[in-house]
Each structure stands twice: as structure tokens, then as C-alpha cells.
């Protein structure tokens, strides 16, 4: 379809190229150009001024001065101070843990959805998607009320007699993990459901007739067929979780170190724009790894 007959130019009021040019220009101006500026500022000196960086970009004619003024100071700070490395590492660790937990919760849910009677499935799908439409910030806030000391969870467990000390989950890494799994769960459920929905039930029945145990059927039929969905779901949870800001800030407290929060602090509190930009560039380089890995998987799957 993508290579089908192009929109004919005859009678098209605006020239056909405008269909491409308009969004193209927008993305170049407001997506690509800003990133080049981030790269440029990451390589600038920190200055206590407004805007707090130097030197200024003064024109193409000064290309040589520009190259001479490049400064790796921010990157040196980034690699020299263990705070930043720790933040990158703990972001990766928290995101990976959240992805794994989300997978463990999402898979049974998606499997049950796909095995439910056909006429229930649209309603179940809407039920899973609907929380994704409600505000992200509000969903994180909902967990603040549940996890805070003397919050809803403490009160519930105490009234059931399960605990006598408050759990003190708020402002811990556990709270961040709960928030992440909760917020990103639909991203994991939907792709797995999509791949399981296409699963041919007769395959399972045939395997059962041939004497395969339920466990065997699950491992050698369901899992391989769900693999594209699992990979897509893991990718969709893992990547945004690494750079997440709102969840660690509201649920993690000062103890939880994540790189999105470090970037925010460097920018808004410390006003070190070159350092914040360097943090962003290094984060992008890290994100490129899962991105390329997923692309390779998708290409192999398509072939």
C-alpha cells in the first residue's frame, strides 16, 4: 500500500508536495533543530548568566570559532562524578525491574482477555485502555494517597490485622516500581493481547490431543506465538521508564536516584544548562541501544 498510486497532482489545489513539506518543516524546526541546539549547549561553558551558557551562537561565519569554543567540560563532569553514573545505572535497573513485573502481571491478563468469549473482548479492551486515557499525573497522585504513611493501604492492612507498623512504602524504590508498573501496564497488555488474539486455538487442541501437558503447550506454543507482543510490550515500558520524571519525583522521594530527575534538577534548581544538556545527550545514546535492538528484532520478525 505504501508504494501504491501517489496522490495525483491534477486538480489538487495546494501543490502535492505541501502534504509532505508542511509536517516535514514543522518537525525539522521543532524537533530536529532543538536537538542540535541541545548538542551545541552540552558542548558550551557553564556561565552564571542568563541564559546560563556561553558562548553564544553568532552565525555560520564563525564556524571556526565555534569549533574552537567546543568544550567537553560538561561531559567530563558527567563521567567524573559518580552521582551521574549511579543515576544512569539505577534508572536502568528500576526500569528493567518495572518491565519484568509489568510483564508478569500483564501476561495472564492479556491471555485471559484473549481466551474470553469473543463478544466480551471489545469491552475488556476498553476497560484496559480507559485508564491510559485518564491523566498520568492523577494516576500517580492516586498512589500517593494509597502509599503514604497512615494512607489507605496502611489503614486497610491494619484493619485486617495484617500489620501493626506502618509499611512506610512512600518515598522508596518500591513505591516507584508500583507507580511505574501501574502507569505503564496498558502498554504491556495491549501488544501481548494483540499477538495472542491471533493465536489459532486449534493448535492448542491438537497439542492436547497429542498428549502435551498444559505447561508444555504453554511453553512451546503460546510463548513463541506471543513473542512479538512480549518484545513490543517490554520495549514500550522499558524505554519511557528510563527517562521518567513524574513517578520518581512524586513517589520516590529524595532517596530514589533516576536520571530524568537529575536532568530536571540540574536545569531548574542548579541552572546548569550545559550539564543538563550533556545529561540529555548521554541519555539519548543509552536509549539508542534498546531502540536499535528492537528494530533488529522487528526486521527479523518481518522477514
Amino acid at each position: 500500500m505504501a508504494t501504491g498510486t501517489p496522490l495525483p497532482g491534477r486538480g489538487w489545489p495546494a501543490p502535492r508536495w505541501l502534504v509532505v513539506a508542511l509536517p516535514y518543516a514543522w518537525l525539522l524546526a521543532f524537533f530536529l533543530l532543538p536537538f542540535l541546539i541541545v548538542l551545541r549547549i552540552a558542548l558550551s561553558d557553564t556561565a552564571r548568566a542568563l541564559p546560563p551558557y556561553a558562548p553564544h551562537w553568532t552565525g555560520w561565519g564563525e564556524a571556526w570559532n565555534f569549533l574552537q569554543a567546543l568544550d567537553l567540560e560538561s561531559f567530563a563532569t558527567l563521567l567524573g562524578d559518580s552521582l551521574y553514573l549511579d543515576a544512569y545505572l539505577s534508572s536502568l535497573r528500576i526500569a528493567a525491574t518495572a518491565t519484568l513485573i509489568a510483564l508478569l502481571i500483564a501476561f495472564p491478563l492479556a491471555y485471559a482477555m484473549a481466551s474470553a468469549p469473543r463478544r466480551w473482548q471489545p469491552a475488556l479492551l476498553i476497560l484496559v485502555i480507559l485508564p491510559f486515557w485518564t491523566s498520568f499525573l492523577i494516576r500517580v497522585y492516586a498512589w500517593m494517597a494509597i502509599l503514604r504513611p497512615e494512607g489507605v493501604l496502611d489503614a486497610l492492612l491494619r484493619s485486617l490485622g495484617l500489620i501493626d507498623q506502618p509499611l512506610a512504602l512512600m518515598n522508596t524504590e518500591t513505591a516507584v516500581l508500583i507507580g511505574m508498573v501501574y502507569s505503564y501496564l496498558p502498554f504491556m497488555v495491549l501488544p501481548i493481547y494483540t499477538s495472542l488474539e491471533k493465536l489459532d486455538r486449534s493448535l492448542l487442541e491438537a497439542a492436547a490431543d497429542l498428549g502435551a501437558t498444559p505447561f508444555r503447550r504453554f511453553v512451546s506454543i503460546v510463548i513463541p506465538l506471543a513473542r512479538p507482543g512480549i518484545y513490543a510490550g517490554c520495549f514500550l515500558v522499558f524505554v519511557p521508564a528510563i527517562g521518567e520524571f513524574v513517578i520518581p519525583d512524586l513517589l520516590g522521594g529524595p532517596e530514589t536516584l533516576m536520571i530524568g530527575k537529575v536532568l530536571w534538577t540540574e536545569f531548574f534548581s542548579n541552572r546548569d544548562w550545559p550539564l543538563a544538556s550533556a545529561v540529555a545527550i548521554l541519555l539519548l545514546l543509552i536509549l539508542a541501544v534498546p531502540l536499535l535492538a528492537y528494530q533488529r528484532f522487528a526486521r527479523k520478525e518481518a522477514a
Binding site: 530536529l32 541541545v38 524505554v239 520524571f245 530524568g260 536532568l263 544538556s277
Partner: peptide
């Protein structure tokens, strides 16, 4: 979907997909 191949299509498709996985703190900063 309809314009077939055009110059810079790969970059265009990349720029369409990028904000979906880009951390918001980076897009905001940029």
C-alpha cells in the same frame, strides 16, 4: 501512506516515531 517514496522519507518517518519513545524531559529541554 500515500506519497510513495520522497526525498528524506527515512528521516521523516524517524522524526514521526521519535517523540513516542523520547523522554519528555529531553523534548522539553530541547
Amino acid at each position: 501512506a500515500r506519497s510513495g517514496r520522497f526525498a528524506g522519507r527515512t528521516l521523516f518517518a524517524g522524526m514521526i516515531a521519535a517523540p513516542l519513545v523520547m523522554p519528555e524531559v529531553i523534548t522539553g529541554l530541547a
